Simulated scan of single mutants.
Amino acid sequence: MLKEVTATRYVTPLREGGSLPGIVEADDLGTYVMKFTGAGQGPRTLVAEVVCGRLAQRLGLRVPELVGIQLDPVIGLGEPDEEVQALLKASGGLNLGMDYLPGSLGFDPLAFGVTPAEAGRVVWFDALVGNVDRSWRNPNLLVWHEKLWLIDHGATMIWHHNWPSAHAAAAKPYDASDHVLSPFAPDVAAAAAELAPLVTRGLLEECVGDVPGEWLGGEPGAMDLGAVRAAYVDVLLERAPSVHDRVTLGEPSRDSASRAPGWLTGDWPHARRGVNR
Rank of each mutant, 00 (worst) to 15 (best):
A7L: 01
T8A: 03
Y10Q: 10
V11R: 11
T12S: 15
P13S: 15
P21N: 07
P21M: 05
I23S: 02
E25T: 01
D27C: 08
Y32F: 06
V33T: 15
F36H: 14
G40S: 14
P43M: 13
R44N: 12
A48F: 00
G53N: 04
R58H: 09
V63N: 14
V63W: 11
V67G: 00
V67S: 03
G68Q: 04
V74I: 00
I75C: 01
G76R: 03
E79H: 01
E82Y: 04
V84Q: 03
V84P: 02
L88D: 07
G92A: 06
L94Y: 05
L94K: 04
L96H: 02
L96I: 00
D99G: 08
L101T: 03
S104G: 03
G113R: 06
G113L: 00
E118I: 10
R121N: 04
F125A: 13
V129I: 13
N131E: 05
D133T: 04
W136D: 15
N140K: 04
K147V: 03
L150F: 03
D152C: 08
H153E: 13
G154E: 13
G154A: 12
G154P: 07
M157V: 11
W159R: 05
S165F: 00
S165E: 09
H167W: 13
A168F: 09
A171W: 12
P173H: 05
P173E: 07
Y174K: 01
A176M: 03
S177V: 10
V180Q: 09
V180D: 10
L181C: 06
L181V: 03
F184S: 11
A185P: 00
A190H: 03
E194Y: 02
R201W: 11
E205L: 01
V208R: 05
P212S: 04
P212W: 00
E214R: 02
W215E: 14
D224L: 05
V228G: 14
V233Q: 06
V233K: 12
T248M: 05
R254I: 12
R254Y: 15
R254A: 10
D255Q: 08
D255F: 02
P261H: 07
P261E: 10
P261A: 14
L264R: 08
G266S: 10
D267V: 02
H270K: 13
